[in-house]
Nucleic acid binder design. Structure first.
Length: 826
RNA sequence: GCCGGUGUGGCGGAAUUGGCAGACGCGCGGGAUUCAAAAUCCCGUGAUAGCAAUAUCGUGUGGGUUCGACCCCCACCACCGGCACCA
């Protein structure tokens, strides 16, 4: 027993014991209620940062608490280990991505263990290992078999300097995240997953996710972007073609004075072919292709476009209206063409003003301040219909369904729903990812590799130049193969999968991490799923969390899992900031978990992280605050050390406490109220900061009690053991050590969570507040549950109350038992 | 522009949801201990006035509801985050 808190020794000792005892290994057990706690697994960059430390500290408190509370807890960890940084290391430092990644994972293992996290390491997964990506490929083939994976030509983000495709998330403000070159569009043949088939379900199910923050649900709703409207057909003059548009504002159809097609619209070529504007149109199309996203989508840029020399017929009034192409109309949304109503749409208004097009108002704001025939901006609010034939006078909102019905009768329009969500482009021209297990045969077309031949292994004979197509193309062994259908020579797909696929089902693999016949056995997934508590950064609110939901729905649909949604409760932790800004290299305000562990130990790091702010809020890093957390642990250690050495001596305390003095009762109250508070704060609302503050209050009370006259040994012993137990989910090493010092041979991590004694929480005397007109005037000590009349009389007899009510009329008396007596006087 | 969030001491944050505003921690001030210092233990610490008891003010701003509002309602301001030419 050391007289000082030697954190390094203690932490190393207990980490070894937990590992040797396989303390957190878990198996399916129907006799207990299960609880699955999951933190978003990291990319193995090799260095744990404070965001990781926060994420895992939160998860670990929950996991340890739930285990002590009697649940069968699954708390796994692994690595999202495919991805670009490994390949950049290969290009820049000539290290193989596999070597780089495996070394990093070893280092991360060490760092995670040093935090004392309660993982079941036997279930570790790494997405870059063939035993994982084999099943990733298998799942991809199931998508393909259901018609949900397909290949098509489409414009994609292209970095002309790196010569590669970029994912949307790798385009930062219109520039390549690596070389900062402006990104352009290029047509390439790519694999897609048909997530749009699940758009409605992804949207509707959000209402059922009660354990998710509204913020995340709203972000997903906006991303899916469902809107109701109509498709309307416009005949093109002197052509047999019909131009279909999508609109949410069918009510404004009479105000459509021109039309706009996307420059990529498939009709454009034919409509302009051979005309005198053909050259202009082609030039415009070309310029749009070379525009960066940033220019093209900026709302501040002036509208551009070209008249294509053609006219359409507005079906409601047979007016001939000119057709333009402009890049403000996107091919990927709706039908790629719009009817333009400049009076009631700001974008159309801007365009019409620039090109001198007619503006016809059809909704009257009925506001004398607005001159309908000289609008300064589009009028987009509610009003009554004008210039609209038989619809005149109707409220425009009501006119929408009326107009659609009428169009329907005429056979020129239909009710439609549109989504903003697009299919998921999953091809990457990269090496360090899961090979897409598809083979191209001249005769059979694209066919999947036979499932028994999986995994399609990543080749190792490749060159990393950072230029051109996927490095896999340079392999001499990979590309040439035979067609699984007809046996003729064929070629493998050389692109790999977006790493977001790997992370879309890893939580299922944890439930059965070593299965060699399937991604996971259904019984195991059904035992553990859903994830009861998922914890991670809000930056994954849309992509990862939506892709995972999509995968879970699909795997449910093909009978592999009973559950349709993967995550029951979601906690999005706040950022770690310092000096008012996010920790970053460029600002030089980074504090690494490693340096805190070195100086104060992991328990202090965990305690500070959990104490300084509630988990979903920003955490403002403070070196003095860390010092304070360390001081608290020293204070706890000293209190218990002194107790064992000087107070308890060699005597082991047991038995019931005798008659309690006033001070004893107070301590007993503190013991029980602390258990109650911590149980509620950790088990229910995840307010770790207030749970810790209540434990600090207990420690303060124990010092005060100890410094008093007489010590009731059994009671004080109970306080000591309670303290060590309820603190253990937060700072497990020091608590296990103190528990052992107290003479126990069992382990805290296995110990039952304490319950509290309600009767100890009932005080004999309660302080009741006395108010006059709602203002605090005095306090009154009264026996618990004193009835109304007695309380009021006692309050009335107070000097302060007498003085202030004298000569005034008491209009009303408000009484709340054990809380308030309030006199309302005039 | 649209959607979401947050505004409380010198600082991080409490207030169990309409009932003692400022728990707990940091910082600061004082005391004990020490030859001295560090560490530790104890006390104090929203503002203003007062020796004091005490009084007045006080949760971004302005109004409202209520015996009583950080909490509910209306209007506004500031900051942060997400999406953004989605028809």
């Amino acid at each position: 027993m050391k007289d000082r808190y030697e954190f390094k020794e203690i932490e190393a000792k207990w980490q070894k014991i937990w590992a040797d005892e396989k303390a957190f290994k878990t198996v399916e057990d129907d006799s207990k209620e299960k609880f699955y706690v999951l933190e978003m697994f990291p990319y193995p960059s090799g260095k744990l940062h404070m965001g990781h430390a926060r994420n895992y500290s939160i998860g670990d408190v929950i996991a340890r608490f739930k285990k002590m509370a009697g649940y069968n807890v699954l708390h796994p960890m692994g690595y999202d280990s495919f991805g670009l940084p490994a390949e950049n290391a290969a290009i820049q430092h000539n290290v193989e991505p596999a070597k780089w990644t495996y070394e990093n994972m070893e280092e991360m293992d060490r760092q995670l263990s040093s935090m004392g996290l309660s993982y079941d390491w036997d279930r570790k997964v790494a997405t870059c290992k063939p035993d994982y990506y084999r099943w990733m490929q298998w799942i991809f083939i199931q998508f393909y078999k259901k018609g949900l994976a397909y290949k098509k030509d489409n414009p994609v983000n292209w970095c002309p300097s790196c010569n590669t495709v970029l994912a949307n998330e790798q385009v930062v403000e219109g520039k390549c995240e690596r070389c900062h070159t402006e990104v352009t569009k290029k047509n390439l043949s790519q694999w897609y997953l048909k997530i749009t088939d699940y758009a409605d379900r992804l949207l509707d199910n959000l209402d059922k996710l009660e354990g998710w923050p509204d913020k995340v649900k709203t972000m997903q709703r906006n991303w899916i972007g469902k809107s109701y409207g109509a498709n309307i057909d416009f005949r093109i003059k002197d052509s047999d073609k019909v131009l279909e548009v999508f609109t949410t504002r069918a009510d404004t159809l009479f105000g459509a004075t021109y039309m706009v097609m996307s420059p990529e619209h498939p009709y454009v070529d034919e409509l302009v072919s051979g005309s005198e504007v053909e050259a202009d149109v082609r030039e415009y199309q070309e310029s749009v292709k070379h525009k960066s996203d940033i220019e093209r989508t900026s709302t501040t840029t002036e509208k551009t476009g070209v008249f294509i020399g053609r006219y359409a017929i507005n079906p409601v009034n047979n007016k001939e209206i000119p057709i333009y192409i402009s890049d403000y109309v996107l091919m990927g949304y709706g039908t790629g063409a719009i009817m333009a109503v400049p009076a009631h749409d700001q974008r159309d208004f801007d365009f019409a003003k620039k090109f001198g097009l007619e503006i016809v108002p059809v909704v009257d704001p009925e506001n004398p301040d607005i001159d309908l025939y000289d609008l300064k901006e589009a009028f987009v609010a509610e009003g009554s219909m004008i210039n609209s034939g038989k619809f005149d006078g109707m409220n425009n909102i009501q006119a929408i369904p009326a107009m659609i019905d009428w169009l329907n009768e005429q056979g020129i329009g239909d009710k439609t729903v549109n989504f903003r969500l697009r299919d998921w482009l999953i091809s990457r021209q990269r090496y360090w990812g899961t090979p897409i297990p598809m083979i191209y045969c001249e005769d059979c077309g694209w066919v999947p590799e036979k499932e028994e031949n999986l995994p399609v292994l990543l080749p190792t004979d490749v060159e990393f130049t950072g230029k051109g197509e996927s490095p896999i193309a340079s392999s001499k062994t990979f590309v040439d193969t035979i067609c699984p259908v007809c046996g003729k020579p064929a070629k493998r797909e050389i692109d790999t999968m977006d790493t977001f696929l790997d992370s879309s089902w890893y939580y299922l693999r944890y439930t059965d991490a070593h299965n060699e016949n399937l991604p996971f056995a259904k019984e195991k997934a059904d035992y553990w799923m859903k994830v009861d508590q998922y914890i991670g950064g809000v930056e994954h609110a849309i992509l990862h969390l939506m892709y995972a939901r999509f995968f879970q729905m699909f795997l449910h649909d093909i009978g592999m899992s009973d559950v349709e949604e993967p995550f029951e409760n979601l906690l999005t932790q706040g950022m770690v900031i310092k000096d008012g800004a996010k920790m970053s290299k460029s600002l030089g305000n980074i504090v690494s978990p490693a340096e805190i562990q070195e100086k104060y130990g992991s328990d202090t790091a965990r305690l500070f992280i959990l104490f300084a702010a509630p988990p979903e809020k920003e955490l403002d890093w403070s070196d003095e605050g860390v010092e304070g957390s360390f001081r608290f642990l020293c204070r706890v250690y000293r209190l218990i050390y002194d107790y064992i050495k000087d107070i308890r001596g060699d005597e082991i305390v047991c038995g019931d406490s005798a008659a309690l003095t006033e001070a004893d009762k107070n301590l007993n109250y503190m013991i029980n109220s602390t258990i109650k508070k911590v149980t509620e704060d950790v088990g229910g609302r995840f307010n770790f900061n207030t749970a810790i503050s209540s434990i600090m209050e207990l420690v303060n009370a124990m010092y005060k009690y100890r410094n008093g006259k007489e010590i009731n040994l059994p009671l004080f012993n109970k306080a000591v053991e309670t303290l060590v137990t309820v603190l253990s989910p937060f700072t497990p090493h020091i608590c296990e050590e103190l528990w052992t010092m107290l003479g126990h041979e069992d382990r805290l991590y296995n110990k039952e969570w304490p319950s509290y004694d309600e009767s100890a929480l009932v005080l004999d005397e309660i302080e009741v507040v006395v108010q006059i007109n709602g203002k605090l005037k005095d306090r009154l000590k009264l026996p618990n549950n004193t009835e109304k009349e007695v309380s009021i009389e006692a309050a009335k007899s107070l000097d302060r109350v007498k003085a202030e009510t004298d000569g005034k009329e008491i209009v009303k008396i408000i009484f709340i038992p054990n809380k308030i007596v309030n006199f309302v006087v005039k």
